[in-house]
């Protein structure tokens, strides 16, 4: 239940991590959502505007679907969830049982480079997050 309320300070710290680790590297947009489809926070580079609320609802559904499929074939989870497009791509990463980090990025960034930074950002975020009961 703890994640339901986040202090202003925690949110600011998360925003700072996302900006430093991802937006500054050229990621277009980063969203942290919970598995119910709520937005915890969203950061973008100021150029690309997305409808983040619809995006969060679809992303939570997409992640949950793939997760359920993994279980059906006997996998704990599929660790990489990545959709590649011509101009932009989307990368999903689980922060913990309740939270997802989603990055939208263009061709200038390689998937490998993005993943390294996502992992780093997630480790930092986990340290601030109150351990859920």
């Amino acid at each position: 239940m703890n994640y339901g309320i986040v202090s202003q300070e925690q949110l600011e710290q998360i925003d700072r991590i996302l900006t430093d680790k991802l937006i500054k590297l050229g990621v277009d947009c980063v969203i942290v959502i919970d598995m119910a489809g709520n937005i915890i926070t969203a950061k973008d580079n100021g150029r690309n505007k997305y409808d983040v609320y619809s995006f969060a609802a679809l992303a939570a559904g997409n992640f949950a679907t793939v997760d359920a499929m993994a279980k059906l074939v006997g996998e704990e989870e599929f660790s990489l969830l990545f959709h590649k497009g011509q101009e932009s791509s989307i990368h999903f990463s689980k922060i913990d049982e309740e939270l997802l980090l989603i990055s939208m990025f263009g061709q200038e960034i390689s998937l490998g480079f993005l993943r390294l930074n996502v992992v780093d950002a997630i480790e930092k975020i986990k340290k601030l997050w109150p351990k859920s009961a």
Binding site: M1, G4, I5, V6, S7, Q8, L11, E12, D34, A36, N38, I39, I40, T41
Partner: peptide, 8 residues
């Protein structure tokens, strides 16, 4: 469950 953003 509802999510409450105290910052915004």
């Amino acid at each position: 469950m509802s999510f409450i953003n105290l910052k915004e």
